[in-house]
Design a protein around this nucleic acid. Structure first.
Lengths: 199, 199
DNA sequence: ATCTGTTCTTATCTTTTGTTATCGTTTTGG
DNA sequence: CCAAAACGATAACAAAAGATAAGAACAGAT
């Protein structure tokens, strides 16, 4: 049974390796703090208003991150397989999370506490470097997201999604979540689809 | 004459100190690479399409960062006194910058090459930590910017600006730049102002 | 298999925003 | 100091998006 934990840990290390090559010692600083959680569809991993303290790594499943305002939800991000998942901003700032993260399917995650990661930052240069590179990675993603919202029309944003890497993955999420991700209403997105598909 | 350079360097060190306390040795790794540049109003500090390699620190002046698309410009950020200024994304990714940065007034900056900073990252733990904290700082700012664009109406975004820290500084920049910063046209922003001021 | 709730489309109506053009006013450069 | 350019407000019209509601297709649960 612990096999699955070890295998998952290996996957996470592989993922982190894309950012930085950690020594075995550095890696072993994190490994004992890993555990696996299972979530049912529609279960929350992070709840708005609570200070987030867990970092996850998606082993299986789909998640959405969203803001709520006057009962209306706006999706800001989708998380898929083999991705780090967290209300990272809340972890960093230690302020209550403005967003919730919800499983859109039954899901499995490897998780560990952010305080552990933070301690590793100051303890090991490899982890400190990972912290920088990961933050830079998120930064670039956010900049592109912001630029899209500012520069592209709703139709262009939809088309960009269709051409993106996550094209096929997004087919598994309800369209009204995608609509709010694009900053428009589901009705408006339906019109856009209608306008485009005929081609 | 070198006095001004030293004084500027002290200001930069003070600014960086908000992120991390550098040892004298760490600081001296950067100091020799600092220089001062003067820009005239409307002069570009970073040009779209060129790989940026300079980090600046605004000593005096106002700057705007903007995207261009089919001749239309959208401002993504304003930079003021005592702020680090760069097409950081371009520096990090070593890809041509999608944005330009333009002085909106005669300006003075302290500058240094990004490659120097990058070398300091791997050489000193203090600098590595600064790299992480700075990236995290930018990340949080971008997340808030994105959330604003996704969650707030144009009018709410304008009101948020009026209540922001940079309230007074923004009075010195032409309104049509602010309009594109909010993701709307100058005409639309004029309507919003009209709608609001009567109160 | 049926029932219930969700999801998506479509239609209608309203509101908001963009577009274009005009007109004072201010700023800037020669 | 003057002419030209830039700036901001406003009006009129067109285009796009939001709100709401109705209905069809689909999935999940009992």
């Amino acid at each position: 049974m612990n096999d699955s934990l070890h295998q998952a840990a290996r996957q996470l290390r592989q993922h982190i390796h894309q950012f930085v090559a950690l020594s075995d010692e550095e890696w072993h600083g994190l490994e004992p703090h890993l555990s696996i959680i299972h979530l049912k569809k529609n279960q929350f991993m992070v709840t708005q208003g609570v200070v987030a303290s867990q970092i996850g790594f998606v082993l299986e499943g789909i998640f959405r991150q969203f803001y709520t305002k006057e009962g209306e939800e706006r999706t800001t991000y989708f998380f898929f397989d083999q991705q780090l998942i967290a209300a990272y901003m809340s972890c960093i700032t230690a302020r209550p999370s403005p967003v919730s993260i919800e499983a859109l399917s039954d899901a499995t995650c490897l998780v560990f506490p952010y305080p552990v990661l933070k301690a590793l930052f100051s303890q090991y240069t490899g982890w400190q470097e990972f912290g920088r590179l990961f933050a830079e990675y998120v930064m670039v993603a956010l900049e592109e997201r912001m630029a899209g919202l500012l520069m592209l029309s709703p139709e262009e944003r939809y088309l960009a999604l269709l051409e993106g890497d996550q094209r096929h993955l997004l087919q598994r999420v309800p369209q009204h979540y995608i609509a709010t991700y694009l900053g428009i209403t589901p009705v408006s997105m339906s019109r856009i689809r209608n306008r485009i598909i005929p081609k």
